[in-house]
Computed example of a mutant assay.
Amino acid sequence: MSLPSRVQLIDVGPRDGLQNEKQPVPAAVKIELVHRLQAAGLKEIEVTSYVSPKWVPQMADNHQVMSGMTRQSGVRYSVLTPNLKGYESAVLDQPDEIVVFGAASEAFSQKNINCSIAESIERFAPVVEAALAAGIAVRGAMSCTVGCPYEGEIAPERVAYLAGLMKQIGVQRVDVADTIGVGTPLKVQRALEATLQHYDIDHISGHFHDTYGQALSNTLAALQMGVWNFQSSVAGLGGCPYAKGATGNVATEDVVYLLSGMGIETGIDLDQLVDAGVFISGHLGRKPNSRVATAVLNKRAA
């Protein structure tokens, strides 16, 4: 068992976390959230996406957010670009990395973006090519790598297939995502093993949802394989649209506490992170969806 000595977290709260919120979140609040996350020590932040505002109205202020934030040296700011039009819009705001996405489930791909997995990758090929030519890093989000709301369990071969397609078009690193949070440790390890057929451990990140309370167990299972890059969301922002009332992304606070307790360095200040979660949760009119934040806040109140 070779645990990494350091882990780098990508906080996806500003993008993945907020995109499904019904109430509009002002650009100024999103900018403040980014500032608080980087002040807490986060070195990678997924800021926004360049999708049609008709489909995701919450991200319509992408230019405003990207141009309004104060960038910190050494922090990587990534954005989601679903097509060439999105990329052309994004490139004006100088992101450090663009994110394209594909599903390991054919049914999910059809329902989500109306095309097959292979067709979705064909669409992304020119986006990846343009980004690399412009010196912008490219990450590929691989969704539904262990389970799908339509197909059920996903075979590791499907994950390997998707990873291979991503590699072919030049995607530099990939996220192995348990999008609906049904994964358990061994299933997650099989999905990671399948991805390792095409990417080395330094170019794979874990993205686990906590729908069934398995995200931290799955994080530990990935750590045991040497994965050192993970995605999480401050205050556990972001629900799971396919499991009503279920929690979505694992809370960054919970992952930081786990890693810290294992002696794994993150460079993140837990107290400042909790404060960032309190800030955005307060704006949304609820408490942070993080066990660790709740415990820290109760301790402070006492």
Rank of each mutant, 00 (worst) to 15 (best):
Q72C: 14
Q72W: 06
Q72S: 12
Q72T: 14
S73H: 09
S73W: 08
S73E: 15
S73G: 12
G74Y: 01
G74S: 04
V75F: 04
R76D: 06
R76A: 09
Y77M: 07
Y77W: 07
V79G: 02
V79M: 03
L80H: 01
L80T: 02
L80M: 09
L80I: 06
L80V: 05
T81I: 13
T81A: 12
T81F: 06
T81W: 04
P82W: 00
P82V: 01
P82Q: 01
P82G: 00
N83H: 00
N83A: 00
N83K: 00
L84A: 07
L84N: 03
L84G: 06
L84I: 14
K85G: 05
G86H: 00
G86S: 03
G86E: 01
G86L: 01
G86Y: 02
Y87C: 03
Y87F: 10
Y87G: 01
Y87W: 12
E88S: 13
E88T: 14
E88L: 15
E88F: 15
E88R: 15
S89L: 15
S89T: 15
S89Q: 15
A90H: 05
A90M: 07
A90K: 09
V91S: 04
V91H: 10
V91Q: 08
V91D: 11
V91I: 14
L92Y: 11
L92W: 13
D93K: 07
D93Q: 11
D93T: 13
Q94Y: 12
Q94L: 14
P95F: 07
P95T: 11
P95R: 09
P95W: 10
P95A: 03
D96R: 11
D96P: 05
D96S: 09
D96Q: 00
D96N: 10
E97P: 05
E97F: 01
E97C: 11
I98H: 09
I98N: 03
I98K: 09
I98R: 05
I98G: 06
I98D: 05
V99F: 08
V99M: 14
V99K: 14
V100N: 07
V100G: 03
V100Q: 06
V100S: 07
V100C: 09
V100A: 06
F101W: 06
F101H: 13
F101L: 11
F101P: 05
F101C: 12
G102M: 03
G102Y: 03
G102K: 08
G102R: 08
G102W: 07
A103I: 04
A104C: 10
A104H: 13
A104G: 10
A104E: 08
A104V: 06
A104L: 12
S105L: 02
S105H: 02
S105I: 00
S105V: 05
E106I: 04
E106D: 10
E106L: 03
A107G: 08
A107T: 12
F108M: 11
F108S: 07
F108E: 11
S109A: 15
S109Y: 13
S109P: 11
